[in-house]
Simulated assay, not measured.
Amino acid sequence: MVSARRSDDPEINDEVDDRPTDGSGRSRDFVQSLERGLAIIRVFNAERPSMTVSEIAQVSGLTRAAVRRFLLTLTELGYVDVKNNRFQLTAQTLELGYSYLSALSFPDIALPRLERLVVGTAEASEGSILDRGDIVYVVRVPGPAMMTISVNVGARRPAHATAMGRALLANLPTADLENYLRTHELTPVLPRTITDPDAFRAELKKVREEGYALVNQELEEGLVAIAVPVRDRMGRARAAINLSTHIGRKSVEDMRALVPLVQEAASDIELGLSRSTNWAD
């Protein structure tokens, strides 16, 4: 169900709340064709970089005729290209996410701080935000060592299995955290992944008390990561940064010893963001 996001403007909220629905919970102003067009874009990923009309119809659940119309429209708009009856996204789709990242300002401010962190620790560092139960990587600086995990800007990972996700979840208001636990399954990514809600609550309590999160091989075999929140002027955790390595390079205790450096980088980022109007809301 798509719900309208509330605004800080009470007049807009009244307008949203008063709009009639069609019985599905959606506003009568809801544009289903736009929803389906975006669904077409989302079917493409690393495992499915190019697809036929039939394949897209099967994945999306739409009819072949509808898929064909949407693909032709997206092709004319420059978001999709076709070769040998196989469709694929074009680089123009990057503009959809770039507009958001440009307004966020966090990646630009965090990048030089994370670069210094990587130089000082010889490990990879990333920054992410929380979105619908996942973390979304918005900035990344690779370390000198090759890691098996493939992470690019824009990639999503389940928040419960990542250090950055836990750093953000631990700082949610209680009601928001309980809503997250009601609506998102703690799926076992690996045998070590915490999947019991009570155990997960206890882990987040520990994260709040210690000021950082540590995940030891819960997302990928051999991957160890530490993370801390990045807060706005009101003290709200708006993003998180991490350091990640392979257990063969640094032990869990070695990574714990680097927490102060990550916290220092987060404080430096917070100082830079305090001057950003995009971080003030």
Rank of each mutant, 00 (worst) to 15 (best):
S3R: 15
P10T: 08
N13M: 04
N13F: 08
P20I: 09
T21M: 00
T21P: 05
R28V: 14
F30E: 13
L34A: 07
E35I: 05
R48C: 03
V53P: 05
T63A: 12
R64Y: 02
R64S: 09
R69W: 14
R69S: 14
L74H: 07
V80D: 02
T90I: 02
E95Q: 12
E95V: 10
I109R: 04
A110M: 08
A110Q: 03
L111H: 09
R113T: 09
R113W: 00
V119S: 14
D131R: 13
G133T: 01
I135A: 01
V136S: 10
V141D: 10
P142D: 04
T148A: 07
S150E: 11
S150G: 13
A155N: 13
H160F: 10
G165K: 00
T174M: 02
A175H: 15
D176K: 12
Y180E: 01
T183W: 12
L186T: 02
V189E: 07
P191M: 07
R192H: 10
T195R: 06
T195E: 01
P197E: 10
K205T: 14
E209M: 11
L214S: 01
L219C: 06
G222E: 02
P229Q: 05
A239W: 01
I241Y: 04
G248N: 15
E253K: 15
E253W: 12
V259A: 07
P260D: 08
G272L: 04
S276C: 09
